[in-house]
């Protein structure tokens, strides 16, 4: 038994089955990411005025690395172009060229993920520290020359430290303190134009210490959730493209039309993944 229109398009719809399937699947993906974007909007709209960490649950601004994010955007867009080039190469019967473009596509995907991992790591080593006097600072820890990840106060106690060396962030120009949640001397340093300042903080002065992780603030919660799910899509898409283009490419010999369709469908998914990022990048990095 053979399923009709599995390869050849159906005359009245002009589509083969998998193409209908992928468009439907993408429609559901739009609803999925739509829900996450709606969540982002709602959380942000109801956040108190002023910027985190100056205001307890204000929305943070400028915490993500824009140049790196921009570079990553470029990487992903490049891969979207190369996947089309690969498909065109197939249509023109140039298998070797197809292979090259596929390789570039998959490498771009892996590069994107590597950079994203680096960004995550950077967040896991960045802390918000609440002091007993009510002031709040952010920065990186320096424990014997290294910068620990994902610590909490428990880890500090376990390391038997009396005082913590902290590379304190000087609030950047986007943030304007409301009241005085920032310690006085840091405020002064800020006005003097300094950018970083190492301070020793007595552990007994600290009331809480948290890395920039999802449970720390709704912004991180939604940032990590959305970028992680997007990352999963990138990973899944890259795996599928790798399978199509390399491991399963024997089909090019046995059933070239079906093979070309596969690449087209994979490419459609890949464009979608790219498109999600094109919305995600401005929303979480720039706005």
């Amino acid at each position: 038994m053979e399923i009709p229109y599995a390869v050849k398009p159906r005359p009245d719809t002009g589509l083969y089955n998998a193409k209908v399937g992928i468009w439907l699947f993408l429609a559901s993906e739009v609803m999925l990411f739509g829900a996450f974007f709606s969540t982002y909007i709602l959380l942000r709209v109801q956040a108190p005025h002023g910027f985190w960490p100056d205001v307890a649950l204000g929305w943070p601004h400028g915490l993500l690395n824009i140049p790196i994010g921009t570079f990553n955007t470029a990487v992903l867009i490049t891969s979207s172009v190369t996947v089309v080039m690969a498909w065109i190469a197939l249509k023109q019967n140039q298998f070797a060229r197809f292979r090259k473009f596929m390789a570039v596509t998959v490498l771009c995907a892996l590069g994107f993920l590597a950079i994203k991992t680096f960004e995550y790591r950077e967040k896991f080593g960045h802390y918000v520290i609440q002091l007993n006097d009510g002031s709040r600072i952010t920065g990186h820890l320096n424990v014997n020359g290294s910068s620990p990840l994902l610590w909490t106060l428990k880890d500090v106690e376990a390391a038997k430290l009396e005082a913590l060396k902290v590379e304190v962030d000087i609030p950047n120009k986007f943030r304007f303190p409301v009241g005085h949640p920032i310690p006085e001397d840091i405020h002064k340093a800020h006005q003097a134009g300094e950018h970083h300042r190492e301070r020793e903080i007595k552990v007994s002065d600290i009331s809480s210490l948290k890395a920039f992780i999802p449970s720390t603030h709704p912004f991180f919660a939604i940032y990590f959730t959305m970028t992680f799910l997007h990352g999963l899509h990138v990973f899944g898409g890259a795996m599928v493209l790798f399978y199509f283009g390399f491991i399963g490419s024997g089909m090019w010999k046995t059933d070239p039309e079906r093979f070309t369709n596969r690449i087209e469908v994979g490419g459609l998914f890949w464009h979608f993944v790219d498109l999600v990022w094109i919305f995600l990048f401005p929303v979480v990095y720039l706005l």
């Binding site: 609803m31 449970s215 959730t225």
Partner: peptide
């Protein structure tokens, strides 16, 4: 099913994150 279920899937993942990772998507201040 195609268009209404994904938002619940999103919501389910967010609540899972609230329950397991300690986030506050649905927890008020």
């Amino acid at each position: 099913l195609l268009l209404a279920f994904p938002p619940l899937e999103a919501a389910g993942l967010l609540q899972l994150s609230d329950n397991v990772l300690g986030t506050s998507f649905f927890l008020p201040t």
